[in-house]
Design a protein around this nucleic acid. Structure first.
Lengths: 391, 391
DNA sequence: TGCTCAACTGAATCCCGCC
DNA sequence: AGGCGGGATTCAGTTGAGC
């Protein structure tokens, strides 16, 4: 399928603050659009949204009354009405809203969809058919799932989320790797997440004490989605807003939201909920400075600043390989025979090990009063100096 | 789509003894059929198999080569059998073997398929299209998955299994509910299972020490599948036998097996492996208990559960050092100058003291009505929740 | 024999900005 | 827009050599 790509998307700055460039002026930011999501999305400018979270109808095939995905009642429920028709119309519905989402997503934008085994396989296959690019499937493990009452199956204790980029080979999508790792005891965040279901105080209830929405998602789940895949100031869209969890969490986390909801009662409850949310202060939001986003420092600038003197010998951590620092910031390998023994700290490190690539900042060490230290520690000094100078 | 149903299917007895009636006389029991699985299955009698476990190619669609941070190359699954021209051709392949499986399944039979996000959505959607009836999707959580080396996604730490009945409203399929519950410390077995990947002694190696099959599954996984969904004496079919895990476990557990494998080297290795298996005595066929998961709690989960609010200030025991809790569960040191003052509770604690490592749980304290308390004291609440969700 | 440590490994759709 | 090159990136576990 040929996909229309939009050229107007803004590029986020490579370094500096993590907050993205401002959203397009004609976006209905921080509002709930009432009505059908495909129609509402078609009125938004193309390539304007950073992150989409979608919690579509699950197409639960309950015995008895059947409803179409658009919630219209099936006129004549007779025996001829078979499941294939139901899947087909669910697929058509899914395809329609996925295409609408694709149009409003920035090229660097990503999409999350949550579902259960009733619908998630269809959604995932359609995502692939429509040329989205799956980045992960995520399992939400419920601490407190509903038990299986009949004892005829395993307790259905999880739901599945799919995280997908707008297109294959998407570069530049947001993934706050360091924040996720730090949030997970300093090991990489995995694809299986553990959260309680939404209950207690968090669960919206009407005056009669009945739950407002049958499938309200926990805020913790949305918080992890939004924190992992967006930056403060980004635009988060939820085409099936329901009780408004996505919008409430986005607001609290300093993101803009756009919600679409066609049920007036849901939209009213969501609006009231969102209004009561107090955004967190900026300081509690700034994403951890990632190594990738840190200002680039050339090794040569260490030489220029006098932190490293030309002629200094660098070694690897075991002091086996040696290289001399030259005045232009390149290294000269001491022991390598033949040609090509001069290059950047990275090339020299790769040559020293006989491998293709190497991070010279961590490979090469310099002798100090307290023993060998990686030259990366000198770069930290420069970075600190620059940060102080900027204030 | 209209699905061809086989009229010759036998009706299983409505109730009765746990051990199934004997298998059909013309079944090639306990053998490996060499060749293409669709062709092999077409030669089996219809409605003759109780349980199918299928581990089809995943269609991984790997692009280039991947290297670890130490520059070593990841030994990827690049075999020809995993390559498909398009999703369309993968779908055609899948549809063909699913239809072949449907024919040989008894009306009470069930099918398991394992896959990853690369293929499982297509398999699941096709199962539904072909009128199978999904009973559960099961998540195999890996204790020791391969990390994400580039830090651009979540660690892909699970695979998905679909458990489906041959047809909707299937009655009389086997689910050993009590055995599963007993194996799970007397609470219902959930849809998320925790197992290590297959390695060590269990992993088949050739004379040169290379793995025989790139994707050998752990026996523990197959044991749970077979113990949950079949009875002793049942016929278990694996259309993609590979290294023979399904057959080996089936034999050990007192089930008959039929394996199909077209690669001669795989089939030879599987045959040798199966020959070495000693079936368990009848009395020992009771299920083995599963180990409980050691609860590991991230500070972030306290934030996600609302036990600690973003913006809260933590201090050390003497209230000298201060740090602010951020929305993603990381801390921001208040007094450290320059960059790099954001990190996990452990990193922040180490930074605050100028030491290499620190247990943030005991270092950081939170103000309560009864004075400062270590944040470790907040973990008990989460531990209780997690213990209930653990296996 | 027992301990330590280095080396190796696993179904993986794994970078990005600048010229 | 394609190529170049700086430089960022890993967890749990097994095996075997060395002491």
């Amino acid at each position: 399928m040929k996909v229309v790509r939009n050229g107007e998307a803004q590029r986020a700055p490579r370094s500096g603050i993590a907050r993205s460039a401002g959203p397009a002026a004609d976006l209905p930011l921080d509002t709930i659009l009432r009505g059908d999501c495909v129609a509402a999305l078609s009125r938004l400018p193309a390539a304007s949204v950073d992150l989409v979270f979608a919690d579509p109808p699950y197409n639960l095939q309950l015995q008895g009354e059947l409803k179409r995905p658009d919630d219209s009642r099936v006129d004549a429920v007779d025996d001829a009405w078979d499941k294939f028709d139901s899947f087909q119309s669910y697929d058509a519905f899914t395809r329609a809203w996925l295409l609408a989402v694709r149009r409003v997503l920035k090229p660097t934008g990503t999409l999350w969809v949550i579902g259960s085994y009733h619908n998630i396989f269809r959604v995932g296959a359609l995502l692939q058919d429509l040329d989205f690019w799956i980045l992960n499937d995520i399992v939400w493990r419920k601490t407190n799932p509903m038990p299986n009452f009949r004892g005829r199956r395993f307790t259905n204790a999880h739901e599945t989320l799919i995280w997908a980029a707008r297109q294959p080979e998407a570069k530049g999508y947001t993934f706050n790797y360091e924040a996720m790792k730090a949030a997970n005891e300093d090991v990489q965040m995995r694809s299986d997440w553990l959260f309680p279901i939404c209950s207690g105080q968090e669960r919206l209830k009407d005056e009669a004490g009945h739950k407002v929405h049958p499938t309200q998602k926990p805020e913790a789940l949305l918080a992890r989605v939004i924190l992992s895949a967006s930056k403060p100031g980004d635009v988060v869209l939820d085409p099936f807003l329901g009780s408004g969890t996505t919008a409430a969490v986005a607001k609290r986390l300093g993101r803009h939201f756009i919600g679409v909801e066609r049920d007036a009662a849901y939209a009213d409850a969501a609006q009231a909920r969102i209004d009561a949310v107090e955004p967190l202060p900026d300081l509690a939001l700034a994403t951890a400075p990632t190594a990738r986003e840190a200002p680039r420092i050339a090794f040569n600038s260490l030489v220029e600043r006098g932190l490293v003197t030309p002629g200094t010998m660098l070694t690897d951590a075991k002091a086996k390989m040696r290289a001399m620092v030259r005045a232009d910031g390149t290294l000269s390998l001491e022991t390598a025979p033949g040609l090509g023994q001069i290059g950047s700290i990275h090339r020299a490190g790769a040559l020293a090990q006989g491998i293709e690539a190497c991070n010279g900042w961590t490979y090469w060490h310099i002798a100090t009063g307290e023993g060998l230290r990686p030259i990366d520690s000198l770069r930290a000094v420069v970075r600190t100096e620059m940060a102080m100078a900027a204030e």
